[in-house]
Each structure stands twice: as C-alpha cells, then as structure tokens.
Design a protein around this nucleic acid. Structure first.
Length: 299
DNA sequence: AAAAAGCTCAACCGCACGTTA
DNA sequence: CTAACGTGCGGTTGAGCTTTT
C-alpha cells in the first residue's frame, strides 16, 4: 500500500498559497483530523463554509474532494476485484465516461478511482492494440474476450475457496474452460441493475444484481440460436459464441472459444499480431491461466 | 548500482448546472 | 430576472513509487 502523501513530506511554506492564504497540494494528517472531526460533529455540505469553520486553509472544493475520495468511512480500499472490473466494463459500455454514475454501482469506490482504473488499465491496452478505446473493435474485444475471462476468473476464485475450505486431499484438477460452472455459485457484488451472462452449447451463466441482492447464477443452457450472437438488450448482456466454434482441449472434451471472426471482424488478426497472453496478464493480473488463451488461439 | 521509463493515484482545474439572495 | 455562490463532474497533472534497462 502506498504511503499517504502527507506522511512523506512536511508542509512547505511555499505551498501556502499567496492568494488568500489558501493551501494546496497534499493534505497533512492535521488537516485530515480537522476535517474528519468537523464533519463527524456537524455533517458535510456547504463546503466553503465548512472549510472556514473547521479552521482549514483550503477551498471548499478541496475539502469535499478529500472527504469523498479519501476520508469518508465507507470507502473500500484495495485492488479492484474481478467482479468490480466486470461491472466497470459493462457499465462503461453502457454509459461511457459517466464515472460518478458508474461509481454509484460500486459501493465504496470513488469516481476518481474508477476513472484512474480505466485510464491506467483499460486505455493502456487499447493503446497497445492500436485501438481507439471507443472503437467498436475495442468494445467487441472487451465483450468477447475480457468479460468472459473475468466471469471465468470470478468462478474459479470462488471454486478454489470452496476446495481449500473443504478438501484437504490432492490438488484438484485444472479448472475447466468456460463455462462449466457450478450451479448457484454466489459472489459478492455491489448494487446494480445489471445482468451479465455467458452462453455456450453446454450451459449459460449469469452475473446479476438487483440493487439489494447480488448473485452469480449458473444454469443449464437453453438451446443456442443459429446465429448465436445476440447480446445487450435492456438489462442483459449475453455473450454467445457460434455452435460451430469448437477447439480440442487438453483438459478433456471439446471446448468453446469466445471469439469468432464472424462475430468480431478483425479481432483474430489483432491477436495474431500482438499475442493474447500478454494482454490478459497485464490487464487482469493473470498468471499461468493465460494458457487458456494460448490453447484456444493456437499460439 | 544507477538512470530511464513506466505506472499509480491524489489533487487540481475548468466548466456546467442548480440554488439562493 | 440575474448575479453570486455552491456543488458536482470529467479531464488533466505531477509527485512518488516501481520496474526495466
């Protein structure tokens, strides 16, 4: 964890703004205490007056930002989880750069945090692919490669928790490829009127939230439609692959691939050029399980 | 070991919009 | 009606840290 800026340096007199004697730059611990104590006693709002009354030589804006992004008690710390990444990708595809709106769906996360995540992780990979982050190609990439990948990870993480809790025996076999998931697999997610689902010939899986209850539900699959490509209606994103796209698996049985040139024109070529494992590793913090892509892509 | 490059994220900025006097 | 003020948002910056060369 990064050390707070105010622990790292003293306040320089130059940071005392000449204009109005207002301070700028990193907050000190004393300023944080003043702000927290004042808001605890008096509540938030009226930030300019609050700044004066609390004895802070800061703008109201600066106080508000410090409180919302760093000091308020319901903030969630730590890395963005796979579930949160999935929600960010889905909500951004729906709403664009409406960071505060997206943040509402991720309790404890700030718009600033989500915005930083998007810029440092997602946009970086768009650049690496020479894609515009707003291009249809990149959106398809996210939809057909990264979101299924995240769903798989969410599942495998929760599965491994169960194994370690209940099974002291030999290590389990490698996790199945998408999406042979257990039924009623529960994961934690923030409130959102979002449902994500994946469909293959074998089963379908969905990750949904309804504002009060969060769940990842895996259920037997309905028959695939011929085109296998429908997705994104009002509240449901369905990631489909055509039934003919099957690949032999070292893990036993035919496996499915989430990409198909007919669905995402040009994508296969993108990955032939750049290589998939690097993408997954840097974006989602993956390690050995990038084998998944190399098997599928024949790389 | 040191320099360079890359990355993260707290904080600031300008603008838009709503509220108040 | 309107000017001033308060608030919130998205975009941008840069200090400090980490990784690579």
């Amino acid at each position: 964890m990064k050390m707070a800026a105010h622990d790292q340096r003293e306040v320089s007199s130059e940071e005392e703004s000449a204009a109005g004697d207002l301070r700028r730059g990193p907050w000190t611990m004393e300023e944080d205490l003043l702000l927290v104590n004042y808001i605890t006693a008096n509540g938030e709002g009226r930030w300019n007056a609050l700044a004066r009354c609390a004895g802070l030589k800061r703008t109201g804006k600066s106080c508000r930002l410090r409180w919302l992004n760093y000091l308020r008690p319901d903030l969630r710390r730590g890395n963005i989880t796979a579930q949160e990444q999935l929600l960010i990708l889905e909500l951004h595809s729906r709403w664009g750069n409406r960071w505060s709106k997206i943040a509402e769906r991720l309790p404890g996360r700030t718009d600033n945090e989500i915005k930083n995540y998007w810029r440092t992780r997602v946009q970086k990979h768009a650049r690496q692919l020479n894609c515009d982050v707003n291009s249809q190609q990149f959106k398809d990439l996210v939809r057909y490669f990264w979101m299924p990948r995240l769903l798989e990870r969410i599942h495998s993480d929760s599965s491994s928790d169960v194994v370690t809790a209940h099974d002291g025996g030999p290590p389990p076999p490698p996790p199945p490829l998408l999406p042979a998931w257990p039924v009623d697999d529960m994961v934690s997610l923030g409130p959102a009127d979002v449902e994500l689902s994946c469909t293959t010939a074998a089963s379908s899986s969905s990750l949904s939230t309804d504002g009060t209850r969060q769940q990842l539900v895996v259920s037997p699959s309905p028959p695939l439609t011929n085109d296998g490509s429908s997705y994104s209606n009002n509240n449901t994103l369905t990631l489909c692959q055509p039934p003919h796209t099957e690949y032999p698996s070292q893990l036993g049985g035919a496996e499915t691939c989430w990409s198909d040139e007919s669905l995402v024109p040009g994508l296969t070529g993108v990955y032939a050029d750049l290589g998939m494992p690097d993408l997954g590793e840097t974006m989602w913090g993956a390690g050995a399980d990038d084998l998944w892509y190399t098997q599928i892509m024949g790389l």
